[in-house]
């Protein structure tokens, strides 16, 4: 069994996210949470930081007030 085994229903909902960057980020976050499900305080910040770097530059839906 691979760490990617997230409930199919959740993956279907993830696929319905229109925003490509947000969808990929959410998927990475869920796979991380799946792998760390039993840990009381998983060290998620470094991993989340990597995921964010991966997608933030190409994110175009930013509503800048400037």
């Amino acid at each position: 069994m691979e760490r990617e085994d997230v409930n199919e229903l959740i993956l279907q909902k993830v696929n319905e996210i229109d925003d490509d960057q947000v969808r990929n980020f959410v998927e990475d976050v869920l796979r991380f949470e799946r792998a760390e499900l039993d840990k009381q305080q998983p060290h998620y910040k470094n991993d989340f930081g990597d995921y964010l770097q991966r997608y933030i530059d190409d994110w175009e839906n930013y509503e800048s007030n400037n």
């Binding site: 409930n7 947000v22 964010l52 933030i56 994110w59």
Partner: peptide, 24 residues
């Protein structure tokens, strides 16, 4: 601007997870 963009991105992702929870 750069930090705010990140904040907004994380917030959008969190909103998606919130709405997914009820649906699931």
């Amino acid at each position: 601007a750069e930090v705010l963009k990140k904040i907004q991105f994380i917030e959008s992702s969190r909103d998606e997870l919130e709405s997914m929870k009820d649906d699931i």
